[in-house]
Design a protein around this nucleic acid. Sequence first.
DNA 1: GTGGTCTAGACCACT
DNA 2: GTGGTCTAGACCACA
Lengths: 129, 129, 129, 129
Amino acid sequence: MFQIDLKCRKPIYEQVIEQYKELIMAGVLKPEEKIPSVRDLAKQLTINPNTIQKAYRELESQGYIYTVSGLGSFISAPSQGAIDRQKIEELKETVRRCLKELLYLNCPRKEIMDIVRELQLSEKEGDQK
Amino acid sequence: MFQIDLKCRKPIYEQVIEQYKELIMAGVLKPEEKIPSVRDLAKQLTINPNTIQKAYRELESQGYIYTVSGLGSFISAPSQGAIDRQKIEELKETVRRCLKELLYLNCPRKEIMDIVRELQLSEKEGDQK
Amino acid sequence: MFQIDLKCRKPIYEQVIEQYKELIMAGVLKPEEKIPSVRDLAKQLTINPNTIQKAYRELESQGYIYTVSGLGSFISAPSQGAIDRQKIEELKETVRRCLKELLYLNCPRKEIMDIVRELQLSEKEGDQK
Amino acid sequence: MFQIDLKCRKPIYEQVIEQYKELIMAGVLKPEEKIPSVRDLAKQLTINPNTIQKAYRELESQGYIYTVSGLGSFISAPSQGAIDRQKIEELKETVRRCLKELLYLNCPRKEIMDIVRELQLSEKEGDQK
DNA sequence: GTGGTCTAGACCACT
DNA sequence: GTGGTCTAGACCACA
């Protein structure tokens, strides 16, 4: 279920966080669903439990999971209310930076637009300027 | 010309790399243009020369600048030939991941499309400001 | 295991790189095998850890080893896929240049052919010792 | 006549040496032929005269050229007598190292043998073991 | 003047 | 424990 790439430069705990986020956002993991305990996941991935613990703590502080001591950890429902502007701006900045670099590397524009299309970001729903 | 944030978690030498890349990609720094010497930039930013050198060395190995020992460092012309597919795919994956997260965070689609528009990525010519 | 010549003009970190490459290419060090930590090797060779780290970092960027922060460094499996044409051409050019010079210096052709034979490069199967 | 690559990591004076050697070994420059003065070559290549001077000094000490003060520098006749064993061994070692790396990089053996063939190192003239 | 190498030693993040 | 970053300062080769 999880694929950890040790050769990758990214810290393992970040890889765990990222993959949880993707599974949550893709709807594979649904709200209130129980996730493996720190110890179980650590054993499964043959990774130090401390590393998993750190990932869970971070996921909790970012609001993606919550932990009930004695019962385990569970997926949170997406917060509909307050939008995390700061995080959104960070992400937008990252996107901007990557797109610029893609253009500089002569990546065909079509490929870039394809990513946008994949995500059904098309301008329907009355979004045009 | 450069803004280094010492408190930021990102290593200083990476900040230098990133800012150089942006200046190069934006066309502010042009091919064959001389950039400050390691010592000069270090003095200017009140940073240890070794740190700047590390940044320059990395920029060189990534093909953004070239260095002539005894003369200084210069902006490279973008490589026309071999396109770095691996790097492109990595960047595309990052963009994909960020866009997904933006959608999950309920970022208005208009904002996302605006980023694309800023970069004049649309294939048609209707690049209204 | 390593022989560093401090008097030699070649930088220490390059000597380390070269010797690692030879051990890897000779099959003495096998993929996934752990290599000494930066600190250990530094202590063993009575060399500053920074110098070893520089060597390791270069070996990693050349794809010979990979590093897991907090765990150590390991031998990479040789990349099967994309062949590094540029590097191959550089090496071929170096060989060409050296061979020309050997001929000019009146090195007996037999000695040169012996090098080729040592490496069992002949396309036929007559690899007599 | 000379092509200096500033982007290349190799010191300029070494590039000059190398190119002179190649021209001499290829017979383009013949014994007793006069070569440009330090100042002329420096102007022609838009390079610091000190750099050319260093190259000439080195070429002279390696026996490829000789200098008559007041007259200029000239190509030496190849020394038929004493063979520079040390240099030969160095070159052979370099060849060996490069060939090993080529094999490791999966360079087709045919390409390697082609280099040998180009130089007419074939086993005629009674060189076989 | 330039960059390149190296040392000694500090501090931090990750496992 | 591991590697990664950074500083301060020395020395050398190159132009």
